[in-house]
Protein backbone atom coordinates (compact mmCIF):
# COMPACT_ATOMS: atom_id res chain seq x y z
CA UNK A 1 0.00 0.00 0.00
CA UNK A 2 0.92 3.63 -0.27
CA UNK A 3 2.66 5.26 2.64
CA UNK A 4 1.12 8.35 4.07
CA UNK A 5 3.78 10.95 3.49
CA UNK A 6 4.09 14.01 5.68
CA UNK A 7 2.66 16.14 2.89
CA UNK A 8 -0.23 13.81 2.51
CA UNK A 9 -0.98 13.82 6.20
CA UNK A 10 -0.87 17.57 6.30
CA UNK A 11 -3.34 17.96 3.47
CA UNK A 12 -5.69 15.51 5.14
CA UNK A 13 -5.48 17.49 8.35
CA UNK A 14 -6.29 20.67 6.38
CA UNK A 15 -9.29 18.92 4.96
CA UNK A 16 -10.47 17.87 8.39
CA UNK A 17 -10.13 21.39 9.74
CA UNK A 18 -11.93 22.88 6.76
CA UNK A 19 -14.79 20.47 7.14
CA UNK A 20 -15.12 21.21 10.86
CA UNK A 21 -15.03 24.98 10.30
CA UNK A 22 -17.68 24.89 7.57
CA UNK A 23 -19.81 22.61 9.67
CA UNK A 24 -19.64 25.10 12.56
CA UNK A 25 -20.56 27.93 10.20
CA UNK A 26 -23.60 26.03 9.05
CA UNK A 27 -24.58 25.33 12.61
CA UNK A 28 -24.18 29.03 13.44
CA UNK A 29 -26.76 29.79 10.78
CA UNK A 30 -29.35 27.19 11.62
CA UNK A 31 -29.16 27.15 15.40
CA UNK A 32 -30.69 30.65 15.73
CA UNK A 33 -33.80 29.43 13.92
CA UNK A 34 -34.27 26.69 16.45
CA UNK A 35 -33.50 29.04 19.34
CA UNK A 36 -35.97 31.62 18.09
CA UNK A 37 -38.74 29.11 17.58
CA UNK A 38 -37.95 27.57 20.94
CA UNK A 39 -38.10 30.92 22.75
CA UNK A 40 -41.34 31.89 21.02
CA UNK A 41 -42.92 28.60 22.05
CA UNK A 42 -41.58 28.88 25.59
CA UNK A 43 -42.76 32.45 26.15
CA UNK A 44 -45.80 32.56 23.90
CA UNK A 45 -47.03 29.02 24.31
CA UNK A 46 -48.92 29.65 27.57
CA UNK A 47 -50.97 32.36 25.84
CA UNK A 48 -52.26 30.07 23.15
CA UNK A 49 -55.75 28.74 23.69
CA UNK A 50 -58.97 28.44 21.72
CA UNK A 51 -60.05 31.61 23.42
CA UNK A 52 -56.88 33.41 22.27
CA UNK A 53 -57.50 32.39 18.68
CA UNK A 54 -61.21 33.08 18.59
CA UNK A 55 -61.80 36.27 20.58
CA UNK A 56 -60.93 39.87 19.70
CA UNK A 57 -58.41 41.91 21.72
CA UNK A 58 -59.84 43.73 24.74
CA UNK A 59 -58.82 46.53 27.06
CA UNK A 60 -56.42 48.35 24.74
CA UNK A 61 -55.10 45.03 23.48
CA UNK A 62 -53.81 44.07 26.92
CA UNK A 63 -56.25 41.17 27.07
CA UNK A 64 -58.14 38.94 24.71
CA UNK A 65 -57.09 37.27 21.52
CA UNK A 66 -56.31 37.72 17.88
CA UNK A 67 -59.49 36.63 16.11
CA UNK A 68 -60.01 39.71 13.86
CA UNK A 69 -56.33 39.71 12.85
CA UNK A 70 -56.47 36.02 12.01
CA UNK A 71 -59.58 36.47 9.89
CA UNK A 72 -58.04 39.53 8.24
CA UNK A 73 -54.89 37.64 7.31
CA UNK A 74 -57.01 34.91 5.73
CA UNK A 75 -58.90 37.53 3.71
CA UNK A 76 -55.68 39.18 2.55
CA UNK A 77 -54.07 35.89 1.57
CA UNK A 78 -57.11 34.55 -0.28
CA UNK A 79 -57.68 37.71 -2.29
CA UNK A 80 -53.95 37.96 -3.07
CA UNK A 81 -53.94 34.35 -4.29
CA UNK A 82 -57.01 34.91 -6.46
CA UNK A 83 -55.14 37.73 -8.14
CA UNK A 84 -51.64 36.32 -8.38
CA UNK A 85 -52.12 32.61 -9.11
CA UNK A 86 -53.85 32.98 -12.50
CA UNK A 87 -51.41 35.66 -13.61
CA UNK A 88 -48.39 33.80 -12.24
CA UNK A 89 -49.39 30.48 -13.79
CA UNK A 90 -50.04 32.20 -17.12
CA UNK A 91 -46.63 33.86 -16.95
CA UNK A 92 -44.95 30.55 -16.15
CA UNK A 93 -46.84 28.85 -19.00
CA UNK A 94 -45.66 31.53 -21.37
CA UNK A 95 -42.06 31.21 -20.27
CA UNK A 96 -42.03 27.42 -20.21
CA UNK A 97 -44.27 26.53 -23.15
CA UNK A 98 -44.23 29.42 -25.59
CA UNK A 99 -41.40 31.88 -25.11
CA UNK A 100 -38.70 31.84 -27.76
CA UNK A 101 -35.17 32.66 -26.68
CA UNK A 102 -35.24 36.35 -27.47
CA UNK A 103 -34.84 39.78 -25.95
CA UNK A 104 -38.41 39.91 -24.66
CA UNK A 105 -37.98 36.65 -22.77
CA UNK A 106 -34.75 37.87 -21.23
CA UNK A 107 -36.50 41.10 -20.25
CA UNK A 108 -39.32 39.14 -18.61
CA UNK A 109 -36.85 37.04 -16.65
CA UNK A 110 -35.02 40.14 -15.53
CA UNK A 111 -38.32 41.72 -14.50
CA UNK A 112 -39.16 38.67 -12.39
CA UNK A 113 -35.80 38.81 -10.64
CA UNK A 114 -36.30 42.49 -9.96
CA UNK A 115 -39.87 42.05 -8.79
CA UNK A 116 -38.52 39.62 -6.21
CA UNK A 117 -35.64 41.92 -5.32
CA UNK A 118 -37.43 45.25 -4.93
CA UNK A 119 -37.69 46.12 -1.21
CA UNK A 120 -41.06 45.38 0.32
CA UNK A 121 -41.47 49.01 1.35
CA UNK A 122 -41.14 50.07 -2.29
CA UNK A 123 -43.92 47.60 -3.11
CA UNK A 124 -45.87 49.36 -0.39
CA UNK A 125 -45.25 52.74 -2.03
CA UNK A 126 -46.40 51.27 -5.33
CA UNK A 127 -49.54 49.97 -3.64
CA UNK A 128 -50.26 53.38 -2.17
CA UNK A 129 -49.61 55.22 -5.44
CA UNK A 130 -51.34 52.74 -7.74
CA UNK A 131 -54.08 50.91 -5.88
CA UNK A 132 -55.01 53.25 -3.04
CA UNK A 133 -54.89 56.53 -4.95
CA UNK A 134 -54.77 56.00 -8.72
CA UNK A 135 -57.33 53.18 -8.93
CA UNK A 136 -59.18 54.67 -5.95
CA UNK A 137 -59.54 51.45 -4.00
CA UNK A 138 -58.71 53.40 -0.84
CA UNK A 139 -57.03 51.63 2.04
CA UNK A 140 -58.80 48.32 1.67
CA UNK A 141 -58.28 44.59 1.56
CA UNK A 142 -58.34 44.86 -2.22
CA UNK A 143 -55.49 47.39 -2.36
CA UNK A 144 -53.44 45.49 0.21
CA UNK A 145 -53.99 42.11 -1.42
CA UNK A 146 -53.11 43.40 -4.88
CA UNK A 147 -49.91 44.87 -3.47
CA UNK A 148 -49.12 41.50 -1.89
CA UNK A 149 -50.03 39.76 -5.14
CA UNK A 150 -47.58 41.81 -7.18
CA UNK A 151 -44.90 41.27 -4.58
CA UNK A 152 -45.27 37.49 -4.36
CA UNK A 153 -45.88 36.97 -8.09
CA UNK A 154 -42.28 35.77 -8.63
CA UNK A 155 -42.81 32.97 -6.10
CA UNK A 156 -45.70 31.55 -8.14
CA UNK A 157 -43.98 32.10 -11.46
CA UNK A 158 -40.70 30.46 -10.46
CA UNK A 159 -42.31 27.46 -8.74
CA UNK A 160 -44.79 26.91 -11.57
CA UNK A 161 -42.16 27.19 -14.25
CA UNK A 162 -40.04 24.63 -12.45
CA UNK A 163 -43.00 22.27 -12.18
CA UNK A 164 -43.85 22.70 -15.86
CA UNK A 165 -40.30 22.11 -16.99
CA UNK A 166 -40.16 18.88 -15.02
CA UNK A 167 -42.70 17.39 -17.44
CA UNK A 168 -40.65 15.53 -20.06
CA UNK A 169 -40.54 17.15 -23.47
CA UNK A 170 -41.33 13.78 -25.10
CA UNK A 171 -44.91 13.98 -23.78
CA UNK A 172 -45.44 17.28 -25.51
CA UNK A 173 -43.91 15.99 -28.73
CA UNK A 174 -46.18 12.95 -28.68
CA UNK A 175 -49.24 15.16 -28.24
CA UNK A 176 -48.25 17.61 -30.94
CA UNK A 177 -47.64 14.77 -33.34
CA UNK A 178 -51.18 13.57 -32.73
CA UNK A 179 -52.46 16.93 -33.85
CA UNK A 180 -53.12 18.38 -30.43
CA UNK A 181 -52.84 22.15 -30.27
CA UNK A 182 -50.41 23.71 -27.83
CA UNK A 183 -53.27 24.53 -25.52
CA UNK A 184 -54.74 21.02 -25.67
CA UNK A 185 -51.29 19.67 -24.86
CA UNK A 186 -50.97 22.01 -21.90
CA UNK A 187 -54.44 21.30 -20.57
CA UNK A 188 -54.47 17.53 -21.01
CA UNK A 189 -50.88 16.55 -20.35
CA UNK A 190 -48.64 19.34 -19.06
CA UNK A 191 -50.87 20.84 -16.37
CA UNK A 192 -52.23 17.57 -14.95
CA UNK A 193 -48.68 16.36 -14.52
CA UNK A 194 -47.38 19.51 -12.88
CA UNK A 195 -50.37 20.53 -10.81
CA UNK A 196 -48.87 19.23 -7.58
CA UNK A 197 -45.64 21.12 -8.18
CA UNK A 198 -47.67 24.26 -8.84
CA UNK A 199 -49.60 23.66 -5.64
CA UNK A 200 -46.31 23.47 -3.75
CA UNK A 201 -45.48 26.93 -5.04
CA UNK A 202 -48.89 28.28 -4.14
CA UNK A 203 -48.61 27.01 -0.57
CA UNK A 204 -45.19 28.63 -0.37
CA UNK A 205 -46.78 31.84 -1.54
CA UNK A 206 -49.41 31.56 1.21
CA UNK A 207 -46.55 31.31 3.67
CA UNK A 208 -44.83 34.38 2.27
CA UNK A 209 -47.99 36.43 1.95
CA UNK A 210 -49.29 35.82 5.45
CA UNK A 211 -46.10 37.12 7.05
CA UNK A 212 -45.63 40.33 5.06
CA UNK A 213 -46.11 43.57 6.94
CA UNK A 214 -44.67 46.55 5.09
CA UNK A 215 -46.81 46.17 1.94
CA UNK A 216 -50.08 46.18 3.89
CA UNK A 217 -49.32 48.86 6.48
CA UNK A 218 -50.52 51.73 4.33
CA UNK A 219 -52.73 49.93 1.86
CA UNK A 220 -55.32 48.11 3.94
CA UNK A 221 -54.21 46.99 7.37
CA UNK A 222 -55.44 48.82 10.40
CA UNK A 223 -54.39 48.62 14.03
CA UNK A 224 -57.75 47.96 15.58
CA UNK A 225 -61.22 47.42 14.26
CA UNK A 226 -64.03 45.65 16.03
CA UNK A 227 -65.87 44.47 12.95
CA UNK A 228 -64.75 41.63 10.78
CA UNK A 229 -64.36 42.62 7.12
CA UNK A 230 -67.45 42.07 5.00
CA UNK A 231 -66.08 42.93 1.58
CA UNK A 232 -62.77 43.55 -0.15
CA UNK A 233 -63.33 47.28 0.23
CA UNK A 234 -63.12 47.13 4.03
CA UNK A 235 -60.00 47.70 6.05
CA UNK A 236 -58.87 44.87 8.22
CA UNK A 237 -56.58 43.83 11.02
CA UNK A 238 -53.82 41.39 10.10
CA UNK A 239 -51.59 39.12 12.17
CA UNK A 240 -48.31 40.60 10.96
CA UNK A 241 -49.35 44.21 11.41
CA UNK A 242 -50.96 43.37 14.73
CA UNK A 243 -47.64 42.02 15.98
CA UNK A 244 -45.83 45.16 14.81
CA UNK A 245 -48.44 47.36 16.44
CA UNK A 246 -48.54 45.74 19.84
CA UNK A 247 -44.77 45.38 19.92
CA UNK A 248 -43.96 48.98 19.07
CA UNK A 249 -46.95 51.30 19.28
CA UNK A 250 -49.03 50.03 22.14
CA UNK A 251 -47.80 50.16 25.69
CA UNK A 252 -48.80 47.88 28.50
CA UNK A 253 -49.37 44.78 26.41
CA UNK A 254 -48.26 41.79 28.52
CA UNK A 255 -45.25 39.95 27.17
CA UNK A 256 -47.24 36.75 27.04
CA UNK A 257 -49.65 38.24 24.52
CA UNK A 258 -47.02 39.70 22.18
CA UNK A 259 -45.12 36.43 22.22
CA UNK A 260 -48.37 34.59 21.68
CA UNK A 261 -49.16 36.69 18.62
CA UNK A 262 -45.64 36.14 17.27
CA UNK A 263 -46.02 32.41 17.88
CA UNK A 264 -49.36 32.21 16.05
CA UNK A 265 -47.92 34.16 13.11
CA UNK A 266 -44.78 32.10 12.82
CA UNK A 267 -46.90 28.98 13.34
CA UNK A 268 -49.02 29.82 10.30
CA UNK A 269 -45.99 30.65 8.20
CA UNK A 270 -43.92 27.62 9.15
CA UNK A 271 -46.88 25.26 8.95
CA UNK A 272 -47.52 26.38 5.37
CA UNK A 273 -43.84 26.12 4.62
CA UNK A 274 -43.63 22.66 6.10
CA UNK A 275 -46.63 21.51 4.09
CA UNK A 276 -44.98 22.86 0.97
CA UNK A 277 -41.67 21.12 1.73
CA UNK A 278 -43.35 17.88 2.74
CA UNK A 279 -45.45 17.93 -0.38
CA UNK A 280 -42.34 18.40 -2.50
CA UNK A 281 -40.49 15.54 -0.84
CA UNK A 282 -43.57 13.32 -1.20
CA UNK A 283 -43.89 14.21 -4.88
CA UNK A 284 -40.32 13.31 -5.61
CA UNK A 285 -41.13 9.71 -4.75
CA UNK A 286 -44.29 9.70 -6.80
CA UNK A 287 -43.16 10.43 -10.35
CA UNK A 288 -45.05 8.52 -12.98
CA UNK A 289 -42.15 8.52 -15.40
Amino acid sequence: MFDATALNRRSYRAQGIAKAVFCLMTVALVVPVLLIIGTLIYKGGPAISWEFLFTPPRNGMTEGGVFPALVGTIWLVVVALLASVPVGVAAALYLSEYAPDNLLTRTINLAIINLAGVPSIVHALFGVGAFVHFFRFGTSILAASLTLAVMTLPVVIVATREALQAVPQAFREACWNMGATRWQTIRKVVLPNSISGILTGVILEVSRTSGETAPIMFTGATAFIVFLPESVFDQTMAMSYHLYYIATQQTGVPEEITFGVALVLIGIVLLMNAISIGFRVYLRGLKKW
Binding site: A262, V269, L270
Partner: peptide
Protein backbone atom coordinates in the same frame (compact mmCIF):
# COMPACT_ATOMS: atom_id res chain seq x y z
CA UNK B 1 -35.44 27.27 4.02
CA UNK B 2 -37.16 27.76 7.38
CA UNK B 3 -34.73 30.55 8.13
CA UNK B 4 -35.90 32.21 4.93
CA UNK B 5 -39.54 31.69 5.84
CA UNK B 6 -39.53 33.61 9.12
CA UNK B 7 -41.39 36.87 8.44
CA UNK B 8 -39.47 40.09 8.84
CA UNK B 9 -41.84 41.43 11.49
CA UNK B 10 -41.06 38.37 13.61
CA UNK B 11 -37.35 39.03 13.13
CA UNK B 12 -37.92 42.60 14.25
CA UNK B 13 -39.82 41.35 17.26
Amino acid sequence: EMLAAIPSVVWGF
